[in-house]
């Protein structure tokens, strides 16, 4: 293993975020605060509670997931797309490192950044509501798995994309709708039956539900199913990445 290469890629990627620390942290904090004012304050005052949980509190896990997913994907996809775009990827390709070592460096850094952002969002949320976490271990597990899985997913998108439009298309056209329709701001049981059935095909439902359960023990699906789903998605991403590795997909001509 070329640990030195993993280390320098990881550090370089973290430094990139550090140099733009304000943007990195300000945008998730500001958007979370806005959601709290609009959903928690304005709308939440009319909804009161869902399954015994105050509405402003109920949306915290969903909001965190929304930001985690979009940040993981954009961080990781940009991290690998940009060197491809500028051509600096030549150096990684000509270095004595394996694809998986590069992957650990890039995805590890992206996941770390998302994790930090997740923690910052939860801290921001705790300024607005009296946050409680029933199962801290499960909460951490879902947080870490989500960061890693979606950073991996972002890495795949970054490899696949050959234009800035493609880089944006998956987060905007796929992830945002899935998160909004995935019970981030409501319980699935509030939907008409037919929409409930459709919703169960949305993988984000399982993420949000499991994450929310770790806070309030309120869930749309069993927490083990949630865990199973995210692990399934993690391994699916790993499988795609291994295939890309074997074929040198979009990296090598």
């Amino acid at each position: 293993m070329n640990f030195s290469a993993i280390r320098v890629i990881y550090i370089a990627e973290m430094m990139r975020a550090w140099n733009t620390l304000f943007q990195t942290l300000a945008s998730p904090v500001i958007s979370t605060s806005l959601y709290f004012v609009v959903f928690g304050g304005a709308i939440g005052s009319r909804i009161q509670s869902i399954e015994g949980v105050e509405y402003a509190l109920f949306i915290v896990p969903g909001l965190t997931m929304l930001t985690l997913l979009t940040q993981s994907i954009s961080n990781a996809s940009f991290g690998i797309y940009f060197p491809k775009f500028t051509g600096t990827i030549y150096e990684v390709l000509s270095a004595p490192i394996s694809f998986f070592e590069a992957l650990i460096g890039y995805v590890g850094a992206a996941a770390t950044k998302s994790f930090i952002i997740g923690v910052v969002i939860l801290l921001t949320a705790s300024l607005f509501v009296d946050l409680r976490i029933e199962h801290p271990f499960w909460m951490l597990l879902f947080l870490v798995l989500t960061c890693v899985t979606f950073s991996l997913f972002g890495f795949i998108i970054g490899l696949w994309a050959d234009s800035f439009e493609k880089l944006q298309i998956v987060p905007i056209l796929v992830i945002t709708p899935l998160v909004f329709l995935g019970g981030s701001f409501y319980s699935i049981s509030m939907l008409p039956p037919i929409w409930q059935t459709i919703t169960y095909f949305n993988p984000v439902v399982y993420l949000v539900s499991g994450f929310r359960w770790s806070f309030f023990e309120v869930a749309d699906v069993n927490v083990w199913i949630s865990l199973g789903m995210i692990l399934f998605f993690l391994f699916a991403c790993l499988a795609v990445v291994s295939w890309m590795f074997k074929t040198g997909y979009k990296l090598k001509e």
Partner: peptide, 23 residues
Amino acid sequence: ELTIGAFESVYATVAFSRGLFGS
């Protein structure tokens, strides 16, 4: 081509290359 990063320092990018090659 002059394929080079933008925001890192000269020293950092050279040290990065060294690390990438496992030295």
